[in-house]
Design a protein around this nucleic acid. Structure first.
Length: 191
DNA sequence: CGCATGATGCACT
DNA sequence: GTGCATCATGCGT
């Protein structure tokens, strides 16, 4: 998981990351949901150009971009090509479950890392991680354990760029922030 | 289960 | 002053 992995379009990286393991100080699991944001994307923090907050997005690929969301949550992004990044939205928790439960308070395992804010809280992410290299401690990566099924859908929690299918996920995973949207009636197999 | 709403900080205009 | 790349809770069905 060197810098060349991240030096590609964010959507490419976001899809490729599904199924990889991610640990922060030994705590984490398997990535099951991501979103891509890039320079041409009105929903992206980088859309209006470099600012103090998004400085990491315009730095070298393979670093973390951390920002505060709605005043109370932290969100962890992985910087890709200049001005683009992948938002980590959900992880299947496998390592350091006790630590995650302690950080999040009593919680079902299903909800430990189901959502960008929850994920960041469970992994102990805050502003001190902004700009850190992803190829060294506290970050550690693992290759997918087997074949991975990836679905692409539209993104969540944004008001612009709503139609771009840059949310990537494992369709059947119970650890998603939200399940795969149901297909329109009549548009798919009967059932 | 679904929708509505309050919490709460800061970058940006 | 405004608007969020969110989460937990409360109420109605």
């Amino acid at each position: 998981m060197d810098a060349t992995f991240f030096d590609r379009p964010a959507a490419t990286v976001a899809a490729a990351l599904i199924g990889h393991g991610l640990l922060v100080d030994g705590v984490g699991g398997v990535i099951v949901e991501t979103e891509a944001y890039d320079r041409t994307d009105p929903a992206s923090h980088s859309f209006a150009g470099p600012t103090r907050r998004n400085a990491s997005m315009f730095g070298p690929p393979g670093r973390a971009y951390v920002y505060r969301s709605y005043g109370l949550h932290w969100c962890l992004n992985l910087v890709c090509e200049t001005g683009s990044a992948v938002l980590l939205r959900a992880i299947e928790p496998t390592m350091g479950l006790e630590t995650m439960r302690a950080r999040r308070g009593l919680d079902a395992q299903r909800l430990l890392c189901a959502g960008p804010g929850r994920l960041a809280q469970a992994l102990g992410i805050d502003l001190s991680h902004d700009g850190l290299r992803l190829d060294r401690a506290p970050f550690a990566w693992g290759a997918p354990q087997g074949p991975v099924t990836v679905a692409a859908t539209t993104r969540i929690g944004i008001s612009r760029g709503v139609e771009v299918p840059w949310r990537f996920l494992v369709p059947g995973s119970p650890y998603l922030s939200r399940p795969l949207p149901r297909a329109k009636p009549g548009a798919g197999p009967a059932g």
